[in-house]
Design a protein around this nucleic acid. Structure first.
Lengths: 292, 292
DNA sequence: CTCGATTGATACCGTAGCGATATGAGTCAC
DNA sequence: GTGACTCATATCGCTACGGTATCAATCGAG
């Protein structure tokens, strides 16, 4: 029984995700025939059929589905091993904190002030990049503002607040004291996504991310609305923008997240400091209906 | 930047564990020169020195130590991915329960009776084999009777009881109502290990395992003593053997353990059934000093 | 100090296996 | 039925992996 190689798993993940040999091969930067052969060899090695191929469709068998899940975890673990070793060997040690720009609710200065165990490097990125950075060992800890797939990750909540909607002050809807999602049907988010799709679990892969100032520009001129946590809205008052509570939306929790396998004392200390900072920040329970 | 392959990690783990290229090559079933070259290439890829070589000694750098740890985790994850896929694809589904023979505290029949989600396959093995089987995906859940390295594993306690010592009924020490570890200095355990080493964190790799009947034979004739959980002793009364409480020993907890990454409902159901069975078994809080 | 033993590095070679190109075969749309 | 699409097969070239032979450095014995 020969050993599995990460190359085989990478190839399989590509095909399984694309459900298409040609696209998977393109994504991997190789031709389709050797990819087909590699997958066939993988199936022979495992003694298991992973994919059902017709000439028009590629679909996963149950074994393929479990392998897809497990292979992603395994590939992350391999990448993390390399990244962590590379990092320990080169450069001075530092705690790498994955952060979404401006999403720290004002806690960051206090945390960095109080955290003296190690210098802190910031790894900026959106929600998905944060999680991937943790899984691949490119970040040690993250501040994350959404519910997330917690496989292999531990977290502690820091602060919680309702979700609010940001719209142009001149918008007719700004006259209302609170809004519902259905009020915003037909409006667009800053990234171009229809507002009513926001809570329906879209990946957003096809929508381009923007930075905060671009977002606020779009909102001010009335060409977009946006959903954001109240603790973020409080910190960014803008004359041309009105924030209104969004009824029926789940509250948003800012959490500190780290790999469950981590036994780093530096990470543990950071978590403690962050929790302390959140308590001291004294976020009041924001009452729904408060005008921000 | 090229990708890490499991072959590179396997080679590195072998060299790092042996701290010797020749022995590592032998263990891998290959010649030494290509192994040296592979490690050098791995260091080049990571841009980090992993090993310090002199002609007489190979030792790990800090980066090498972290890579050794992470690589073992990653290799386990890869192996688990393959094993789980192989298993899902072939044969009927079953819950594979890793078990140390006779260590179920009598809970097993009740659990198997109540567990009807899936047929259950038993995977027998000692403590270490149980943990490895879970990590490599060869078992779904285990009943474990020792504290263990919980990295990547979740557990729930089932029952707890004091540790007792088993010795021949004719042994002079059997006249005492309770014993301390120091009373047993010079005695041997059934596997040949000196009794006083039992709690000093030995790996026991050099001592051969025995099955319960062999163990009890050795104890009956007075050539060995043994430490075991009270809930195991209760279930195996033997005329020629006396059980005495062991003062100063930690209580032993029987736990149900599973991979933290598992989201299998079959495993979750098993855990619930096992906890229920443990409650119903009505193990009384065993008072230290009780004669068994 | 010299010599042999030990151990990792270097040089060189044969080949397995990986990936590319060309082509075949099955299926669907029209 | 024909053309487009998609995966499988056939074949070839080359990379890179592993083996053998040898060198170089270190250490211990005498």
């Amino acid at each position: 029984m020969s050993h599995l190689e990460t190359r085989q798993l990478r190839y399989f993940v590509a095909v399984a995700e694309e459900e298409h040999f040609g696209r998977a091969a393109a994504r991997l930067g190789m031709a389709q025939p050797p990819l087909s052969r590699a997958i066939r060899e993988l199936e022979r090695q495992l003694g298991v059929q992973l994919l059902v191929r017709t000439t028009r469709q590629v679909s996963l068998t149950p074994a393929g589905r479990t392998l897809l899940e497990d292979a992603r975890v395994a590939l992350d673990a391999v990448a993390a091993a390399g990244n962590r070793a590379r990092r320990v060997g080169t450069g001075r040690p530092a705690l790498r904190l994955a952060l979404k720009a401006d999403y720290d609710a004002g806690l960051l200065p206090g945390i960095l002030d109080a955290y003296d165990a190690l210098p802190v490097e910031l790894v900026l990125g959106g929600y998905l990049e944060q999680i991937v950075a943790l899984r691949e060992g490119r970040a040690d800890v993250a501040l994350v503002a959404t519910t997330f797939d917690g496989r292999g990750l531990d977290s502690e909540p820091l602060i919680t607040g309702p979700r609010v909607v940001a719209l142009a002050a001149s918008d007719p809807l700004a006259a209302r004291t609170s809004l519902r999602l259905s009020d915003l049907a037909g409006r667009l988010l800053p990234n171009g996504m229809p507002a009513e799709q926001w809570f329906s679990g879209t990946t957003g892969g096809q929508y381009r991310p923007l930075d905060l100032s671009q977002i606020f520009n779009l909102i001010e001129v009335g060409s977009a609305v946006w959903f954001l946590p109240a603790w973020l809205a409080e910190r960014t008052p803008r004359p041309g923008i009105a924030y209104r509570p969004l009824e029926g939306a789940e509250p948003v929790t800012l959490s500190v997240v780290w790999p469950a396998a981590s036994r780093s004392t530096a990470v543990a200390a950071f978590v403690r400091v962050a929790q302390e900072a959140a308590r001291n920040a004294g976020f009041p329970a924001v009452v729904a209906g408060t005008s921000l």
